[in-house]
Design a protein around this nucleic acid. Structure first.
Length: 564
DNA sequence: GCCGTTTTCGGCCCGACTGTTTTCAGTCG
């Protein structure tokens, strides 16, 4: 649905529609994408317009999608406008106005036609287009045909990279203060480019130093206060520099998100204030208020400080206005890890003892070792139990819980004997195959199992590689509450499953979640940082996270009787 | 197209960089 509205926005833009109408469709698309409940059902009941950015017209168009399979306005325009024009928009530097002129004035309607026109220097006959534009078109279209479109970068790769670059530039003589910003600072699961901001006495000197970094493969833009580079490893970095007194304004501006800032500024305009990265201007008096910290920016605009992870215009501004933001969970609050593997699973690198000692060194009180069921057949299950018992005697008061990760079969059954499951402290059931075959029903059945405590990586997605199961979260959350089963936020950088909006829906329903590393080696225990980030984006406080509790309390939550 | 502690009409965030042009429109974030 969101994709259709985005396509409609693109086509309207090429047609030359008024920009705010286009913006309205884009906002609606974003809202639909971030709404965890079924928007189609809401629209049929006439309730979709309760969503911010969805009004009467867009609600009607949602109903058209449900009832007719397509939006009439979209079908009409698809007939009129050549489909390749959408691809033109993806060429850097070509926007809707230029694409429209290339189409209407030069009669070009295909990607190949565009490439040829650029090669034959026919684009420059249009005023405003010149040799450089033709060069950009040729470059974009030849690149596009070789490797696939540039992938978004996982947080697990972008965050360490930006931290290292910040540390490097921190020591540079030009730099006053420097920080990560943008979607990495908001800890989004993937990023398109990595943003940095800095203050400096000599901004031009700093951007020059930035584009001259040894790892830079390409300089995409370079001005005195702003530069964009592409590194040899494919990462795109953006640096923006302002004077020291505006550090708070700049950090706030460049952390985003765009939607958050848009809403923040619209609200400010209504109060006679104009907000930019340089400061807050009182329109009436032209007084400029600069802020050295983000907290000052938010306070001056009437909000409490909003943690970066919440800045998506999904209710945080209203909550901050009322002083009702949640106190978000942080990594230090975790008392244990409820999903990890040892060399009892052949896809893992470290022994039970190595994993346990590493967890203890992180300050945990307990871990559940949850090796895969197919590696613990027959007497291997008992042998592992003996090893755990022996280790527990030596490591006390640290505790290794005996766990297992079982597969959810096609019929919703799990693949380990009941007597083994009954002997476990903690049982995770996960989908590992056939994600398209009734995933909802299979998970619901697994939750009904008397010995299953948690559903691991519920959708089984792999970011950038596999969509994962198309789950209907509402009944799953309801069943989880009913059966005292928990859901996991899996911290592997390419899983982060449940994702933010789903985890938020679970929290709002009153369900606690486990933040687990799913480590297969010692180094991966630290991945819980990414799971915690996802939890923070989902508005979770420490109380919403199962493994912030001592094991004794977790155990009590598993219910009396059959789930024990 | 959406929305309302100035409005049911008339607004709608703000600034940097590029490529082109002689002062700016378009694009981008």
């Amino acid at each position: 649905m969101a994709e259709r509205f985005e396509l409609l926005a693109d086509l309207l833009e090429i047609e030359g529609a008024e920009s705010y109408r286009v913006l309205a469709y884009r906002r609606a698309a974003a809202r639909i994408r971030e709404t965890p409940t079924a928007v189609a059902e809401m629209a049929l009941e006439g309730k979709a317009r309760a969503l911010p950015g969805v009004g009467r017209t867009i609600e009607e168009k949602i109903v058209q999608i449900v009832q007719d399979g397509e939006i009439k306005a979209l079908r009409d325009r698809r007939d009129r406008i050549p489909s390749d024009l959408i691809a033109f928009l993806r060429v850097p530097g070509l926007g809707p106005k230029t694409v429209r002129r290339i189409w209407q004035e030069l009669g070009i309607t295909t990607v190949e036609g565009l490439r040829q026109a650029a090669a034959e220097q026919r684009l420059r006959v249009l005023t405003g287009l010149g040799p450089k534009t033709e060069e950009n078109v040729l470059k974009a279209l030849s690149v596009e045909q070789a490797p696939p479109a540039p992938q978004r970068t996982l947080l697990g790769k972008a965050l360490p990279a930006v931290r290292q670059l910040v540390a490097e530039l921190q020591d540079d003589a030009h730099v006053d203060r420097i920080s990560e910003a943008g979607s990495v600072r908001r800890r989004k699961e993937t990023t398109r480019d990595v943003d940095l901001i800095a203050t400096a006495r000599d901004p031009a000197g700093l951007t020059a130093r930035f584009v001259a970094h040894e790892a830079v493969a390409e300089v995409a833009a370079h001005g005195p206060t702003k530069a964009t580079v592409v590194w040899q490893n494919g990462l795109r970095f953006d640096l923006r520099v302002v004077p020291p007194e505006s550090y708070g304004n700049l950090l706030q501006h460049f952390t985003g998100s765009k939607d958050h800032n848009l809403a923040l500024r619209e609200a400010a305009v209504r109060e006679g204030l104009s907000v930019s990265e340089y400061g807050i201007v009182v329109v009436e008096t032209n007084e400029v208020i600069t802020a050295e910290s983000e907290e000052d920016v938010y306070r001056r605009l009437g909000y409490e400080l909003i943690p970066p992870e919440l800045r998506e215009n999904l209710g945080e501004l209203e909550a901050a206005r009322r002083g009702e933001l949640p106190r978000l969970v942080d990594v230090d609050a975790l008392r244990g890890d409820l999903h990890m593997h040892s060399t009892w699973s052949t896809d893992a690198d470290h022994s039970l003892e190595e994993m346990a000692r590493a967890a203890q060194a992180r300050g945990y009180d307990y871990v559940a070792v949850t090796d895969h069921s197919h590696y613990l057949r027959e007497d291997r299950f008992r042998a592992q139990a003996e090893e755990i018992a022996a280790l527990n005697e030596r490591l006390t008061p640290f505790r290794i819980l005996q766990g297992i990760e079982v597969n959810i079969g096609l019929d919703g059954s799990v693949d380990a004997p009941d007597e083994d499951l009954a002997a476990c402290d903690w049982v995770i059931a996960s989908l590992h195959r056939a994600f398209d075959s009734s995933p909802n029903e299979r998970i619901l059945a697994a939750m009904e199992h008397p010995h299953v405590h948690c559903i691991g990586h519920p959708t089984a997605r792999k970011i950038g590689r596999r969509e994962g199961a198309d789950l209907d979260l509402e009944p799953l959350i309801a069943k989880a509450l009913e059966t005292r089963t928990f859901l996991e936020i899996n911290s592997q950088p390419d899983r982060l499953d449940l994702r933010d909006v789903h985890a938020r829906a679970a929290r709002e329903a009153g369900l606690q979640l486990a933040i687990s590393s799913d480590s297969h080696r010692v180094s991966e225990l630290a991945n819980v940082e990414y799971g915690v980030a996802q939890a923070r984006r989902a508005w979770l406080g420490a109380g919403d996270v199962l493994n912030t509790r001592p094991w004794r309390e977790v155990e009590a939550l598993l219910g009396s009787g059959e789930k024990r």
